[in-house]
């Protein structure tokens, strides 16, 4: 479950591009920040599933 959250941000081919820009910010910057969503979702799901 946590594996994609660790692996995806480590694949430069995914994010090392200029376009498309978002509000003038190159993909490189906004997509890496967007990866936070994966991390947060993964940890949230693990928390929910393992809570007691």
């Amino acid at each position: 479950m946590l594996a994609p959250a660790i692996v995806v941000p480590l694949v430069p081919a995914l994010f090392n591009h200029e376009e498309p820009r978002l509000f003038g910010v190159p993909l490189f910057y906004w997509l890496q920040l967007a990866f936070l969503v994966i991390s947060v979702s993964a940890t949230l799901i693990v928390y929910r599933v393992t809570r007691r």
Partner: peptide, 12 residues
């Protein structure tokens, strides 16, 4: 940024 993104699943 990627460093502090992946650190939390690792910590978990």
């Amino acid at each position: 940024v990627p460093y502090t993104v992946i650190t939390y699943p690792l910590v978990m």
